[in-house]
Design a protein around this nucleic acid. Structure first.
Length: 400
RNA sequence: GGAGAGGUGCCGGAGUGGUUAAUCGGAGCAGACUGUAAAUCUGCCGCUGUAAUGGCUGCGCAGGUUCGAAUCCUGCCCUCUCCA
């Protein structure tokens, strides 16, 4: 019987293990396992949705296993078929390199660098020739490919599916063969691709990898999975204030998921939160603040988290200006057109947008609503546009 | 290679010669409410600009017809379906 700790790692916050029984056996052998994690260098930014899986990798590392991170510099050129945009500009080698760098900086905030090996697909696909492609593709049928839900949906729905896209799962599967992966990690949307890896490994005479599928974190909109293209994401490099604010803006119903998937809690703590929520014995907002604080701490440290929280309370609950305002506008003439000011500071994209905000009562200086376009500026005044845009006004003559 | 359908704003999707900057829904933004939650209500939602029913750009791309086109014609590009 495996020890409780291992079981916990294997069962908590995981959507599915294929095949759990085999996985357990593998763990019992005691040898360090090769954990495969792929990465698409066209999307270098890591958000909390990714963190769910990275935390799990970390937990496995702590049990003594090794992560093999595969930079998908070839698959990135195809574009992940699960995305809606089919045509994706090819990345230059330079872009790929810098994206990979960006990615890894973030990746190793969660994953242990010492227990990670980084490999690039180009190391093997760089010398792949047509004969190899024919060889690889001949192992699979169109029907097999169409078994994948999103291909099928698009195909039957009259949407285009390019042949290169069908290649995507095969290349990913081939990666597993190259590294002789023991376990592949991915979101539940990666199920098909990971299973292809098992198929191909079997064909190549390897032991099929186990697959650990992580639940997809729902984004700030409370509806769709967190993703950058949907704009409902919380990036891990975001400044503390934004990260805190975004966490506060998630719907209450997501609270438990977030706690479960992103925070280290004992079973008792988690159960406590759950019952608090169910009994209405705590304002969910306070739990959310705790969540936000914990998450900001993870990526920015305690001080930053505390500051972010106090600022949040100040700005959004007490409706005051934040203590520090990064954006400034320097003026030399006190009489100014507020629309011009807003445009030049970049808080609006066009003059029309600025005018709209003004007529809707969303613009104020030092707490006083602006009603006409001509305003007089004072040194140190604070311009607020909408909920979260602040600009400090500075008199040019006074800085010299 | 042949036949047919179609390409509209961030997305979905109306609109087949003028009152269409383009119905409607979603997303987004602002305001009210509030816990930057949910729900609800109101307004906005191409650029520019005002005294204004103003100007400019715009419905795959390039031309053409017309007083006037997203809507008609020609060519091109792209997608889907069926046949081979």
């Amino acid at each position: 019987m495996p020890d409780k700790n291992v079981l916990n790692v294997l069962r908590k916050g995981i959507a599915e293990v294929i095949i759990e029984e085999e996985m357990l056996k593998l763990l019992e052998t005691g040898r360090p396992l090769r954990l495969k994690q792929g990465f698409d260098p066209s999307r270098p930014d890591i958000h909390l949705g990714h963190v769910v899986g990275l935390r799990k990798l970390r937990q496995f590392q702590d049990l003594g296993h090794q992560v093999i991170l595969i930079v998908g510099d070839w698959t990135a050129q195809i574009g992940d078929p699960s995305g809606e945009s089919i045509t994706r500009p090819m990345l230059t080698a330079e872009e790929v390199r810098s994206n990979a760098q960006t990615y890894m900086e973030q990746f190793f905030k969660v994953v242990d660098k010492e227990k990670t090996r980084v490999l690039w697909q180009s190391e093997w696909f760089g010398k792949f020739n047509l004969a190899d492609v024919l060889q690889l593709t001949s192992k699979f049928t169109v029907a097999q490919m169409l078994a994948r839900e999103d291909f099928n949906k698009r195909f039957t729905g009259g949407q285009p599916v390019t042949i290169t896209e069908l290649l995507y799962p095969l290349l990913q599967a081939y990666d597993s063969v190259v590294i002789n992966a023991d376990v592949e990690f991915g979101g539940t949307d990666q199920k098909f691709n990971c299973l292809m890896g098992r198929e191909l490994q079997k064909i190549k005479g390897q032991t099929p990898q186990q697959v650990i599928l992580m639940p997809l974190l729902v984004g700030t909109d409370g509806v769709h999975k967190m993703s950058k293209s949907l704009g409902n994401y919380i990036g891990i490099t975001e400044i503390p204030a934004d990260m805190f604010g975004k966490v506060m803006s998630i719907p209450d119903k997501l609270l438990l998921d977030y706690f479960e998937l992103l925070v280290d809690l004992t079973e008792e703590e988690f159960a406590g939160i759950k019952s608090d929520l169910e009994n209405d014995s705590i304002n969910p907002m306070n739990l959310k603040k705790r969540l936000a604080r914990t998450l900001v701490e993870q990526f920015h440290g305690e001080d930053a988290a505390a500051l972010a929280e106090s600022n949040f309370t100040r700005v959004f609950q007490d409706r005051k200006a934040p203590e520090e305002i990064e954006t400034t506008f320097q003026f030399s003439d006190e009489k100014a057109n507020i629309v011009e000011v807003m445009l030049s500071t970049g808080i609006v994209k066009s003059k029309g947008e600025a005018r709209r905000l003004i007529t809707q009562g969303g613009v104020q200086i030092d707490g006083v609503k602006i009603t006409s376009e001509t305003v007089s500026l004072k040194n140190g005044s604070i311009l607020r546009a909408g909920k979260r845009n602040f600009v400090r006004l500075i008199d040019k003559d006074l800085i010299k």
